Simulated scan of single mutants.
Amino acid sequence: MKKTTSFLLLFFCYPMLAQNVGVDTAYPDTNAALDIYSEKKGLIMTRLPLTATDNPSPLANHVMGMTTYNTTTSAAQTPVSVYEGLYYNDGTKWTQMGPNTLMIGDIKHSLETADHKGWFLLDGRNISSLPTVAQFNAGAVGIGANLPDASDTFIKTNNGTESEGSVAGNNSIVVTQANLPNINYSSVTSTNGNHNHSYTDSYNGAKTLGLATNVLPLVPLISETVGTNDVLPGNLHTSENDGNHAHTVNVPSGGSDVPINATPQHIVANVFVYLGE
């Protein structure tokens, strides 16, 4: 009789269990397939030794919605490395859950002044000075021998022709003649009172004109002076003063192509890259 009663109880309870299951609760939430109630205990997820985010192992294949606690940390640090913690599967890869879901190579601006919790200041230092894990991850995301130096720079996206992490550009410009406004300037001196200008006097010496006659035996040649020297000697003289007048002048600007700092106003912050702990 007891066996029959037990069978009947299980039979009648089955439809109710198929709808939703409650553990330590007689009234499981109707929206939950499983409702576990406890005021003293927690829930332990399955624990799996994952190998890489792109590898479903130890599962046969990726399953969307699968959740587990990973118990291993990859020996080789790569972009697909796994670390101990909760992971979920989106059908193509494992993704770490919680505050540690940072991706290697993430960039952030911060008022922090030093490396912290896997974030490393982009200050141009050699990556050999970083922890071993950070060195592996720096190489994995394409950083060369040195971290980029983000001091006084603005980070932009890659336009397809630049190398990741390259630093280029200038924070100053030089104004050329083409940059000047299209304005004509003219300038004259102030009038400087009566003054003179110098000049050099020139003159011709005496000239002799020879005249031939038709009486050759008598007067073969007659000489006649037709010009004399000027009365004034050939010296430097000055002109008469010409009254008050002005002169045009060329005035150099005195410029020397000093660059103009074109850095816009900004808030000071440091740039960090996440390379893991």
Rank of each mutant, 00 (worst) to 15 (best):
T5K: 08
S6M: 04
L8K: 13
L9M: 04
L9E: 02
L10W: 11
L10T: 08
F12D: 02
C13A: 12
C13T: 10
P15G: 02
V21I: 14
V23R: 11
T25E: 00
Y27V: 11
Y27A: 06
Y27I: 09
D29P: 12
T30F: 15
T30W: 12
N31F: 14
N31T: 11
L34N: 11
D35K: 15
D35T: 14
I36R: 14
E39Y: 15
G42E: 00
T46E: 01
P49L: 01
T53P: 06
T53M: 02
D54V: 07
P56M: 00
L59P: 09
T73W: 07
A75D: 11
T78K: 06
T78V: 06
Y83Q: 02
L86A: 11
K93A: 05
W94E: 01
G98H: 03
P99S: 00
P99Q: 00
P99R: 01
I104R: 10
D106T: 15
D106H: 15
I107G: 05
I107R: 09
L111Y: 13
D115W: 15
D115G: 10
H116R: 07
H116L: 00
W119F: 13
D123P: 13
D123G: 09
G124V: 05
I127A: 03
I127V: 14
S128A: 08
S129W: 15
L130W: 14
N137Q: 04
A138M: 04
G144A: 03
F154Q: 06
F154K: 12
K156R: 07
K156I: 08
N159R: 10
E162T: 12
E164L: 13
G165E: 00
S166C: 03
V167I: 09
V167E: 01
V174N: 08
V175A: 06
T176F: 12
P181E: 00
Y185S: 06
S186M: 02
T189D: 04
T191K: 09
G193Y: 10
G193W: 15
N194A: 07
N196Q: 09
Y199K: 09
Y203L: 01
N204A: 05
L209I: 13
L209Q: 12
L211D: 02
V215Y: 11
V219I: 13
L221N: 13
G227T: 14
G227W: 09
T228A: 01
N235A: 05
L236V: 14
T238V: 08
H245R: 05
T248R: 07
V249A: 03
P252S: 03
S253N: 10
S256P: 04
V258N: 10
P259V: 02
N261P: 14
Q265P: 13
I267V: 15
V268F: 15
V271R: 07
E277N: 14
